[in-house]
Design a protein around this nucleic acid. Structure first.
Lengths: 145, 145
DNA sequence: TATTGTTATACTCTATAACTATA
DNA sequence: TATAGTTATAGAGTATAACAATA
């Protein structure tokens, strides 16, 4: 995709285009960084919730991430198969599954989180540190309300 | 989704989360703004190419947008059904379809583009004008190379 | 009756493979 | 043989509906 005729500029200046492709590029970068740990960006999101919250149910994880509870099932199935998380019926309410990181999962999470942070830095490397910080601030402001 | 426990901060500070949700919010905004014209953001992208390039083939539009040529078929079918574009076999190479905006389509495009620009402004309204400009610049910088 | 996890199913989006017609 | 458009099909991703177990 080299320098095309006239539509390039208009097309590539549109905020929709910029946001979409920033996302694509970022996702490609982080998924590559996380691949050695056998997880992707979505998995890492779930692990973050588990790492920062005490014993949680599947439903709570799903709601925190804003995905349907049926979507959590397959995601956690895969993480469980890899020995990263563990599911147990909650003794206090046996409808619930208590989801936790395993020992191995906790170590994998720490390493994956470090790799993710490194990928963030790589992504922002074209901006000065202050421009990078401002970019992140702008995103947070845009998502408020 | 109110103020949750601890994972909120970490989760919602991650660049991946911010970029994804900025995209979702922006897409919702622009799709709503474009709905009165019977098109969405993807359609507008195609119309932009047609509006800024002279008689073009389907394949050229697809390649400019970075989508598969099979994907263009249904997209253009819908726009043709709405009377927004017209397809004619290229007399010089009858394998090609020359795709053009109709009169009505050209008017619809102008109005839709204006609505889109308005939606961009709305999206960026939480930032100062200079912060908005810098945000867009940062996105373009991040997509270079 | 309501809720949690699960399964079956459907829907959207987009790509690959194969077909038609042109070249 | 190769290319443009089309159609059929398949895969990823995620949602809704229905069911089992539990409250």
């Amino acid at each position: 995709m080299s320098t095309e005729a006239s539509p390039g500029p208009d097309l590539h200046r549109a905020l929709g285009y910029l946001l979409k492709h920033a996302n694509l590029k970022f996702t490609a970068l982080t998924d590559a960084a996380l691949a050695p740990f056998g997880i992707d960006g979505k998995d890492l999101g779930a692990l973050r919730v588990l790492a920062h919250r005490d014993p949680t149910s599947q439903l709570q994880v799903a709601q925190t991430l804003g995905v349907d509870r049926t979507t959590m099932v397959a995601l956690l199935d895969a993480l469980e198969d890899k020995g990263i998380i563990r599911r147990q019926p909650d003794p206090a309410d046996r409808r619930r599954n208590v989801v936790e990181l395993t020992e191995q999962g906790s170590e994998a999470y720490d390493a994956a989180e470090a790799a993710y942070q490194e990928a963030e830095k790589t992504f922002l490397a074209a901006l000065s540190p202050s421009a990078g910080a401002q970019f992140r601030r702008a995103l947070r402001t845009l998502l408020e309300d």
